[in-house]
């Protein structure tokens, strides 16, 4: 019972925070310095790991597909498998998970420590709403940057699949053939669907992490607890939202 009320409370406060932040959207132009700083942080902290992980996920996909397809002699279709799974599912979900781990945790830690050390209280007494100064630029930056990261992830993953397909003896498919199949079966719509998913995931992750950070109560020990809660909640939400979004975007 207690858990249920806690979940509902969290949901309600997140929604309120979102509405408050949105009510200040007009100030975004004025806050562009903060917006660009957050864009840089999200892109900079996550891009290298997104590239590395996407590369290996694309490679593993190709390898596994090659292994199971050799029984049917359908290796030439590997491009479509890697292309579609990367674009529709693995690219966006993986980027979202990395954003939760690198960006979400950092946001939760920063806002939680601002809360614990009364910096948020100070902002409020200065009549500077935290939703405006701390949350809005981060949300906007997530909206812009996470799809970009996902697109880069897609491309790197496809490339990884192509490399594996060429150099693995059980597959041995030239990149031209691989990409021809990939292009034939992976439509523009699939890629856009995936980027849309990434956008929603990134937005949810950043919003939830902001809310958990700002609702931290107590001393420095709670900062760590908030970070853990923020990341775990983000991961669960990514997978739950993913299910429903996939249904909608079928």
């Amino acid at each position: 019972m207690k858990q249920i009320t806690a979940i509902l409370e969290g949901f309600g406060s997140t929604l309120l925070l979102l509405l408050r932040a949105l009510s200040f959207s007009g100030t975004l132009v004025r806050q562009r310095a903060r917006f660009f700083e957050q864009c840089y942080l999200i892109g900079y902290t996550t891009l290298p790991i997104v590239a590395i992980l996407s590369f290996f996920i694309g490679s593993v996909l190709a390898l596994q597909a090659g292994y199971s397809m050799q029984n049917f002699g359908t290796q030439q279709f590997i491009g479509s498998l890697v292309g579609l799974s990367m674009a529709r599912e693995l690219g966006p979900v993986m980027v979202a998970i990395l954003v939760a781990g690198r960006v979400g945790s950092a946001i939760a830690a920063e806002l939680a420590s601002m809360k614990v050390y009364q910096e948020v209280d100070a902002l409020e007494t200065m009549n500077i709403p935290p939703a405006r100064m701390l949350v809005l630029p981060r949300l906007a930056a997530a909206l812009v940057m996470v799809p970009v990261l996902a697109l880069i992830g897609d491309l790197v993953g496809w490339f990884g699949g192509a490399l594996v397909s060429k150099y693995t003896s059980i597959i041995s498919i030239e990149p031209e053939a691989y990409f021809a199949v990939l292009r034939r079966y992976t439509h523009f719509k699939d890629v856009v669907n995936g980027l849309l998913k990434a956008e929603v995931f990134g937005f949810v992750v950043v919003l939830v992490c902001c809310n958990i950070g700002l609702n931290t109560r107590g001393g420095p020990r709670e900062i760590g607890a908030s970070v853990t809660r923020a990341v775990v909640t983000s991961l669960i939400l990514i997978l739950v939202v993913d299910y429903f979004l996939t249904q909608v975007l079928m």
Partner: peptide
């Protein structure tokens, strides 16, 4: 807070770190 300008000097300072 919007009508009255109030400033509180916090016991701990509460500076933006």
């Amino acid at each position: 807070r919007e009508r009255v300008r109030m400033a509180l000097v916090f016991q701990s300072g509460a500076l933006f770190n």
